[in-house]
């Protein structure tokens, strides 16, 4: 790999990119639209119900029925939109949280006394709390305590 070739390839690949990404702000818009549709749909359905009960005219009642069905449909569509886009955001956050927790676990293993041997590698999950406790005990030894006491604490 030469300097020029990689740099040239980099510039060429950048040239093929489309910027900026116009879809970046859309999910938030869809979530908002979902909320609006849910609220409007529910309000429409309740209004239609009240209208149909407020009259004995079958024509008005039929109109109210159609309006109510439209409201419920709008609410269902709104709920679907809201779930679809808010769930995406939540799952993205959940994945980020998972990676962070895993990184934290890795750091805990890397601490003195927290590392496991290759043979014990398969039991990483099971060894996690014990390893953490050992690491914590070893990091904060009581200077006043006799050495044997410290050993006992570690072994438990």
């Amino acid at each position: 790999m030469t300097t020029d070739s990689r740099a040239d390839r980099f510039v060429r690949e950048l040239g093929e990119l489309k910027i900026p990404d116009p879809a970046a702000g859309r999910p938030r818009l869809w979530v908002r639209l979902g909320v609006v549709l849910m609220a409007a749909g529910a309000a429409l359905a309740i209004t239609a119900y009240a209208t149909s009960h407020g009259t004995r005219d079958p024509l008005v009642q039929r109109d109210a029925l159609a309006l109510g069905l439209g409201g419920i449909t709008a609410a269902v569509i709104g709920a679907a939109l809201f779930l679809r886009y808010s769930l995406t955001g939540f799952l993205r956050f959940w994945m980020a949280r998972q990676s962070y927790d895993l990184a934290l676990l890795g750091d805990r293993f890397a601490e003195p006394g927290g590392a496991v041997t290759p043979a014990a590698g398969a039991a990483v999950g099971a060894a996690k709390p014990a390893a953490a406790e050992v690491g914590a005990t070893e990091e904060t030894p009581d200077p006043a305590a006799p050495h044997s006491t410290a050993k006992e604490t570690v072994s438990t």
């Binding site: 990689r6 740099a7 390839r9 980099f10 510039v11 690949e13 950048l14 040239g15 990119l17 489309k18 910027i19 900026p20 990404d21 970046a24």
Partner: peptide
């Protein structure tokens, strides 16, 4: 690489290098 890439998608930037 001499080109204004402000606002580019990070996935595309990662693919480019």
């Amino acid at each position: 690489g001499g080109r204004d890439m402000t606002g580019a998608n990070p996935r595309d930037l990662a693919r480019a290098g």
